[in-house]
Amino acid sequence: MIKLVYCITRKDGMSRADFLKTWLEDHGPLVKSYAETIGAKRYVQSHTGMDEINESFIPTRGLKQPYDGITEIWWDSLEAMQAGSTSDAGKAAARALLEDEKRFIEFSKSAVFMTEEHEIF
């Protein structure tokens, strides 16, 4: 299994409540509507919370403020992900998802990368 990990920061000036509502109630269903087209097997949003605990990690590790959340999308293989993203329908889905993300994600403060999972326990 491979996974896309997207560490997300909300748009400057957007309230946390509006960001979470947009991400969960608008963007989540949009991603789900394209899941078969892009060949995705699983999609999870993890919303950052527990601010006091998160802030306690900063001085002990020299970290910056946490992201507002992460998205994870799984595919069975790299080939499955590539097949879903290179078809005409997959390219159209990617464009639609990017346009929607522009409404609530501050790209310059976010990060996205592909991973290969290695389950330890």
Results as ranks from 00 to 15, higher is better:
78 L>A: 13
109 K>L: 13
85 S>H: 14
10 R>T: 10
111 A>S: 15
106 E>V: 03
26 D>G: 03
119 E>R: 10
121 F>T: 10
48 T>G: 06
73 I>H: 00
25 E>R: 01
118 H>R: 11
89 A>S: 11
25 E>K: 07
88 D>W: 08
98 L>G: 12
62 G>I: 02
8 I>Y: 00
85 S>R: 10
57 F>D: 08
45 Q>Y: 00
49 G>T: 08
3 K>P: 01
78 L>V: 08
116 E>N: 05
112 V>K: 10
39 G>F: 07
64 K>T: 06
110 S>G: 00
11 K>R: 14
20 L>G: 05
32 K>Y: 05
120 I>V: 14
65 Q>I: 00
91 K>M: 07
110 S>W: 01
38 I>H: 05
80 A>V: 12
117 E>W: 04
36 E>R: 10
34 Y>W: 14
93 A>K: 09
42 R>L: 12
2 I>T: 09
10 R>Y: 01
71 T>A: 15
36 E>Y: 02
57 F>A: 10
66 P>N: 09
65 Q>F: 10
60 T>W: 07
76 D>G: 15
114 M>P: 05
43 Y>Q: 04
99 E>N: 09
51 D>P: 03
65 Q>T: 11
1 M>N: 06
77 S>H: 07
63 L>H: 11
1 M>E: 10
68 D>L: 10
99 E>G: 13
101 E>Y: 03
36 E>Q: 14
118 H>T: 12
110 S>N: 11
31 V>E: 05
88 D>M: 11
25 E>A: 06
84 G>K: 01
57 F>R: 03
11 K>L: 14
39 G>T: 02
52 E>L: 13
46 S>W: 08
74 W>I: 09
112 V>A: 13
110 S>C: 11
53 I>W: 07
70 I>C: 04
47 H>T: 09
11 K>E: 06
